[in-house]
């Protein structure tokens, strides 16, 4: 399975980065989501892959998967949700303020009045 996970990771990274290099906010957000998957799975994979060995005490278990990366990734998933939510909101705000959803400002975009307040 290692080869499959590694290839999936590479693909998710490449797809995520490609989308993040687009010009509009929505693909960038989707790209970031894909990249978050890749990063989370990568950190998880640092604990090496194990099947049928959840890190939960039980009678007659052969061993435990590495719990530490799992704990790290668990909070990372929740935090990346928070981050995605903020970015989505920012993208939405930028679209509503400026009338377009390009990630780079047009030359004629000036900061809106509302920002200064």
């Amino acid at each position: 399975m290692e080869a499959l996970v590694a290839s999936a990771l590479g693909l998710l990274t490449a797809a995520g980065l490609y989308l993040m290099l687009r010009q509009r906010t929505f693909p960038v957000i989707v790209g970031l989501t894909l990249l978050s998957y890749a990063v989370n799975v990568f950190i998880f994979a640092v604990g090496r892959l194990t099947t049928n060995m959840p890190p939960i005490y039980g009678p007659d278990v052969a061993g435990y998967a590495d719990p530490l990366p799992q704990a790290l990734v668990l909070t990372a998933i929740v935090i990346s949700f928070g981050m995605t939510a903020v970015i989505v909101m920012m993208a939405l705000g930028a679209f509503l303020e400026s009338g377009h959803d390009k990630i780079d400002m047009n030359d004629d975009d000036t900061p809106a009045e509302g920002d200064a307040k």
């Binding site: 590694a6 990771l9 590479g10 797809a15 980065l17 994979a45």
Partner: peptide, 9 residues
């Protein structure tokens, strides 16, 4: 970058 991540992981 994708290839790098795949090889690394």
């Amino acid at each position: 970058a994708g290839i790098a991540i795949a090889v690394l992981s």
